[in-house]
Design a binder for these strands. Structure first.
Lengths: 234, 234
DNA sequence: TGTTAACAGTTTACACCGTTAACTAAATTT
DNA sequence: AAATTTAGTTAACGGTGTAAACTGTTAACA
């Protein structure tokens, strides 16, 4: 045999992806509840039951979609990292703008990642955690780079980690074998939680009635935050 | 007749509330998707169709639940406002702690408010916006009070509203007839979006693996934020 | 190369869902 | 006491995910 990829395997992979694509399309149009096996099947001109050859259940399909979303966000961040120009601060800003841009371009996916519709349910951590880390690592790495650059001058209160958290962060770093400084991780978390709030409120249209242009609001607040961290803005 | 409350009206109100209670229970157990009219009906030992005497549709039921959640949060904040002791800053802190406490105590309701889990569905703004404002007004009012107290000394970059947003905020205030200063509204939005991010990440357990004690993290970050605003912490 | 086993797909059926329509029984109003 | 409003019923329709039994097709092996 020429190799592992038999004709059938190729075809299988194709329809596997086609099912996910159709499902994703339905989801983008109407949310997770709008994903219907019969609808997908009709769109692909096959019977609904056939999907069970590819996914154990509807939940399994949606789990796969969630996983794809995790990775798509990770890809977007990594790609932004690679194409970003300028000094470390400028590149950090570019990546953080990409983060929001991806969220508003893929609101359903973003929601899937950061808000599970079903209590108790958690997408398999052994798969999602690495995906989340992929994106996180880009940002933390850039922060670390910023901290070592000439564009950083320590500035209270972000020059040091709050004593109540130091130990925990250091433990986390050692446990997972990261190669970042605790301060970079701390600033990463602080930045993440702040920007996350803005994006979430924007996605649900809670922000626009007050601030108007939410993209601008995001940019402004991000810049304020980074300079509060001690970075000199370009 | 003795008055407006006929025996039937009382009974109607009772089952009306009972339906919502059952729905809320189902939702807490399995998410919004798990709210089934037949399930509720079975739990109440009546037929599913009977629910249509009380709610126009399943969506209407869920809208009622959302509205209840909005009002419950508003109640909690108003009550915290009334019972809070100390100077303006201390009372503001107390209310903001209540905000998070309510969110973690009622995660489902908080999600209903800030994370629309239902595809296509948007809660009617003419009902939700006033409910949002009720809670918001408490916080903005307290900020305003802080700004006029001896515990405030303007501090860059939060001493002024970013030029790009000034006009919009002032328009909003005039349009809705609020009696707050633009700066108080601005700081309110900034604070809201920052704290919202922390709470959201906490609700989905994204924060705890990194920071450990998320309640403490919230408190620390809130204090940092308020002193960045120019408030002197007690 | 012909046989066998795995596999993609079908049809059918089941239990559940929201919703509507026609109807009954009880409470209120007149 | 009669008329009317209303809370409830049952039955049905079209939709859903899913399991089982079955039918061809494809790949692997003697």
């Amino acid at each position: 045999m020429d190799s592992s990829k038999t004709r059938r395997d190729v075809r299988r992979e194709e329809t596997y992806q086609a099912i996910k694509a159709a499902a994703h399309q339905q989801m983008a149009a109407g949310g997770t509840a709008a994903v219907s096996l019969r609808g997908i099947a009709a769109h692909m001109r096959m019977s609904a039951a056939a999907i069970y050859r590819y996914f154990e259940s509807r939940d399994a399909l949606i789990t796969a979609l969630i996983l794809d979303s995790f990775n798509a966000l990770g890809d977007a961040l990594e790609q932004a990292h690679h194409t970003a120009q300028g000094n470390a601060v400028q590149r950090l800003i570019a990546v953080l703008e990409t983060y929001r841009a991806w969220a508003v371009a893929h609101p359903i996916d973003f929601q899937l990642i950061y808000g599970n519709p079903i209590p108790d349910y958690h997408a398999p951590p052994e798969l999602t955690v690495p995906a989340v880390i992929r994106g996180f690592v880009v940002i933390i790495g850039l922060i670390e780079e910023c901290l070592h650059s000439t564009h950083y001058t320590p500035r209270a209160p972000y020059a040091e980690i709050p004593p109540s958290m130091r130990e925990r962060l250091e433990a986390r770093i050692q446990q997972d074998g990261y190669t970042v400084s605790p301060l970079a991780l701390y600033l990463g978390v602080v930045g993440w939680s702040q920007l996350h709030g803005i994006i979430m409120l924007e996605l649900f249209n809670h922000l626009q009635p007050i601030v108007g242009d939410s993209a601008q609001y995001y940019t402004v607040q991000m810049h304020l935050m980074l300079s509060a961290f001690g970075l000199t803005m370009p």
